[in-house]
Design a protein around this nucleic acid. Structure first.
Length: 847
RNA sequence: GCGGGCGUGGCGGAAUGGUAGACGCUGCGGACUUAAAAUCCGUUGACCGUAAAGGUCGUGGGGGUUCAAGUCCCCCCGCCCGCACCA
């Protein structure tokens, strides 16, 4: 029974047994509490990478643990299958996106299966299946009915060489990633979802998501960007006559500073800008100059403040004073009203602007400790009391804001209002490999939704990727159709959905993946949703997670489901990093090649950074699994770092994990023949060493349970080592040893499931470990009749004493003070105070 | 610029305000072996002492609160991430 652990064969054996037993297939069970574990589904790019291994290992630990704890665990998997890489592959390899995608799915499914994940594969789907996307086409039509979807003109990045629209990430330094041509901005009619209608709801319910990382909630909060303020109007004074009575509406979060206003500024693309500036050459030059300032957002943010003086003036609504109207490059048309009033004394941008154009700077908020504040180049943005502000004089900022809003409302010019930074979600993509938008354009009837009985609108198979632009647009016949309402010739929408559309509701589809008539049956969604634990990369902290939250609320509005938030718990994992290697010619070297080198002296070893193909510091998880086994990969990926932090992949680390697995197998092989039989009953009494062993295993069960609940999986691994060490040094082949071994096996099961099953059967068990429950903690074993406590003298540890649990203060004091080392430390000093905090510390204060 | 996080041995990392460095890796010493690998045992923060005990210093830097600070408060330094003219 002492043979070597054959990892490959054993792991495969257990995977086959689980599959045969349908160990992870689940159905709704009203008598059992459900638990939904979900990892962000993968994009089928070709092969799995280490990030996937980390992600799915984390999820699997939770799923297997919760299963052992008696929950009805749903743990599904699918494919985020639409997207640009498939089209790029089509162009480069002359392979159809559909074929490419499905081939990749087949490879990656096979790879994922070798990880031994407790997934219910019967729920699998790919988002490019018409059976999946037909439902989102229907939902889109419902959104249209409810006014959640609408169409408007919008600006896109346009590559003039490829004649195609570029995603933001395809624009590099203002140029097309493929053609390197300067990107143009074009206006197209595009579809939007009214996420802004849900802004407040999305913001408010963030508070309920207390199992989300604080960081992600803050990021979403900032992204939504709610600001309270005042919106009101200024009258424009015409320099020539009184006929021009146009007004400029502005928004401010600082109405308290209104009396410090010294100019108005409009966005360059504000409709009034055009009217005031007309087609003056200077204005055209100014616009030109604005556009020449780089394209990166950072460059724009740091660019000089530029203004164009329209020559017009506006009347201060409360003072009657006249202020000049500028058009300024730092005013954004799509925030607020696209116009502001400038208060140079209390806003740095306005201050920079005023200095450049020699505008007055009048402080109106005076800090308590600087009564004669003057502002030159640094705006004062702190708190203080109002001055030079008539009815607001003497108020603090908060009260003045309210007073000013009230005043404006009284004189019937303006109102307190709320602005959001959040913009509506543009969902149109001028792409082939996405879900078609089910809309028909008819010359007589206009925009006509595709009737429900004609769904799904599927993609044509015969497409040509050689021509630039959207293949759906050039397809000879696909876009031609009859108008559903008048029957005349009409054309289809050729845009497809943003792929975030598919990933916004897939968590619902897993609950009822084969439903032909609706996205999800309401009762199934009610049973499984919301997801209890969602796990993925922090790079999705805002967009995907916000869209999915919004989509859930929109689906609720349309009556599909009753769920309000899709993901109750969220965990964001860190990246996997690796050292980088460069040869003498600065060429990057793969770690596997580096390891194989006999002479490594010429290679420069660089710091450990995120794995990337360009730096070649990648390892292929398949190699790892083939060499060391899935359990070793899983163990190592959890061992070294807390899961939320970056993990450095090292050869030593994976080897160490592999050695530990072999050690566990060896230990149990050796002990097994001499152990009491499987299922034998506990003896009446235990020796002291047996009691100690039992105490350790039960205490560690408690620790590991807490570790898993809190995602402290590196600590869980540490505790597994601890228990294994304790067991190794235990010398009796008695019932307590068998108990501890069984506990150990159950504790390693979520992390190393193949090994655990193997060891479990080696111990003579006839059940599958996947069907066993988590070890019960015997609380009476956790208590002890002695305790050990440190003794400090003036805060420095001088001794450690062990006493009976029932020792009173007097005994503690006597024992502590009689310790030779304590006495030495107290030499020449007298006792001032004796501090005893039971269970914590003794501290003797002596002087 | 704003927001968030982090800083602990040679390394990854542990420590509800209560004996800093759990656990692992590496290194060193030893056992087994003809030898090596594997495995097992011991040891591994620095310094002083060393037969054994002890002692001093130590959690990025500086102050503070406390009987007691890696942990709490204030100031500073460094690194990482997110947002970026949002009025």
């Amino acid at each position: 029974m002492n043979e070597r652990y054959n990892i490959k064969e054993t792991e495969e054996k257990w995977r086959n047994i689980w599959e045969k037993h349908k160990s992870f297939a689940v159905t709704e069970q009203s008598d059992k509490e459900k638990y939904y574990v979900l990892e962000m589904f993968p994009y089928p790019s070709g092969r799995i990478h280490v990030g996937h291994v980390r992600n799915y290992t984390l999820g699997d630990v939770v799923a297997r643990y919760k299963n052992a704890k008696g929950f009805n665990v749903i743990h599904p998997m699918g494919w985020d299958a639409f997207g640009l890489p498939a089209e790029n592959a089509a162009i480069e390899n002359k392979q159809h996106p559909n074929k490419w995608t499905h081939e990749n799915i087949n490879i990656m499914r096979k790879q994922l299966k070798t990880m031994g994940l407790s997934i219910d594969w019967s729920r699998e789907f790919a988002t490019c299946d018409p059976e999946y996307y037909r439902h989102e086409q229907k939902m889109f039509l419902d959104f249209l009915d409810r006014g959640i979807a609408y169409r408007k003109e919008s600006v896109v990045n346009w590559d003039p060489v490829d004649n195609t629209v570029l995603a933001n990430e395809q624009v590099i330094d203002g140029k097309g990633w493929r053609t390197n041509a300067p990107v143009e901005r074009r206006t197209l009619n595009q579809w939007f979802l009214k996420i802004t209608d849900y802004a407040d709801d999305l913001l408010k319910s963030l508070e309920k998501l207390d199992h989300w990382p604080e960081k992600v909630r803050i990021m979403q909060e900032n992204w939504i960007g709610k600001s309270k303020g005042l919106q009101f109007k200024w009258d424009i004074i015409s320099p020539n006559s009184q006929e021009n009575n146009e007004q400029i509406e502005v928004f401010t979060t600082r109405p308290d500073t209104l009396f410090g206003a010294s100019f108005l500024a409009l966005a360059p693309d504000h409709p009034i800008s055009k009217k005031l500036a007309g087609d003056k050459k200077e204005f055209q030059d100014f616009l030109q100059e604005c556009q020449s300032v780089g394209t990166s957002e950072e460059a724009i943010a740091q660019a000089d403040k530029l203004g164009f003086d329209t020559g017009y003036k506006a009347t201060h609504p409360l003072l009657g004073r006249e202020v000049p109207i500028y058009i300024a490059n730092f005013i954004l048309m799509d925030y607020g009203t696209g116009a502001i009033f400038g208060v140079p004394a209390h806003d740095q941008r306005d201050c920079d602007f005023a200095n450049k154009y020699h505008l007055p700077i009048l402080p109106v908020v005076i800090p308590e400790d600087m009564p004669d504040l003057t502002v030159t180049t640094e705006a004062y943005t702190g708190s203080g009391k109002l001055a030079n502000s008539e009815f607001m004089n003497g108020m603090d900022v908060k009260n003045a804001i309210e007073a000013c809003i009230q005043k404006c409302e009284e004189i019937d010019n303006g109102f307190g209002t709320i602005q959001y930074r959040l913009r509506d979600w543009g969902i149109s993509r001028q792409r082939y490999w996405g879900c078609p938008i089910p809309i028909i354009y008819c010359d007589s009837c206009g925009v006509v939704p595709v009737p429900e009985d004609q769904l799904p609108v599927t993609l044509p198979e015969d497409v040509n990727f050689n021509e630039s632009g959207n293949p759906l647009e050039h397809h000879p016949t696909w876009k031609n159709c009859k108008c559903p309402s008048c029957g005349k010739n009409a054309t289809r929408e050729t845009d497809t959905f943003d792929t975030f559309f598919e990933s916004s509701w897939y968590q619902f589809r897993y609950c009822d993946p084969h439903n032909k008539t609706e996205p999800v049956a309401k009762d199934k969604a009610a049973y499984w949703m919301p997801v209890n634990q969602y796990i993925g990369g922090v790079e999705h902290a805002v967009l995907h997670l916000l869209y999915a939250r919004f989509f859930t609320k929109a689906m609720k509005t349309c009556g599909y489901i009753d769920c309000d938030e899709p993901f109750l718990g969220l965990f964001t994992q860190g990246m996997v990093t690796h050292e980088t290697y460069q040869d003498s010619n600065d060429n990057w070297v793969f770690p596997s090649d580096y390891d194989a080198m006999k002479d490594k002296s010429a290679v420069k070893v660089g710091s450990s950074v995120k794995m990337s193909k360009s730096k070649k510091n990648v390892i292929d998880p398949q190699d790892i699994i083939d060499t060391y086994g899935a359990d070793a990969a899983r163990l190592f990926i959890l061992s070294d770092s807390p899961p939320e932090r970056d993990l450095e992949w090292t050869e030593k680390g994976i080897e160490g994990a592999w050695k530990f697995i072999n050690k566990l197998h060896r230990t149990i092989s050796q002990l097994q023949p001499n152990l009491p039989e499987y299922g034998s009953t506990a003896p009446e009494s235990f020796t002291d060493t047996a009691k100690e062993l039992r105490k350790t295993s039960h205490k560690i069960t408690k620790n590991i349970s807490e570790n898993i609940e809190n995602f402290h999986l590196n600590k869980a691994v540490a505790h597994i080592h601890e228990l294994s060490n304790t067991i190794s040094s235990y010398k009796n082949n008695d019932w307590a040893l068998r108990e501890s071994l069984e506990i150990l096996i159950k504790l390693i099961n979520p992390i190393m499931p193949h090994l655990a099953e193997e060891l479990w059967s080696m111990l003579g068990a006839t059940t599958l470990l996947t069907e066993e429950s988590w070890p019960e903690i015997n609380k009476s074993l956790l208590t002890s009749n002695t305790f050990t406590i440190g003794v400090q003298v003036n805060g420095k540890v001088r001794a450690s004493i062990t006493l009976a649990t029932n020792a009173n203060q007097e005994l503690v004091e006597k024992t502590a003070l009689s310790e030779p080392n304590v006495q030495r430390a107290m030499e020449g000093k007298s006792l001032r105070k004796f501090i005893y905090i039971p269970g914590k510390i003794v501290n003797v204060v002596a002087k």
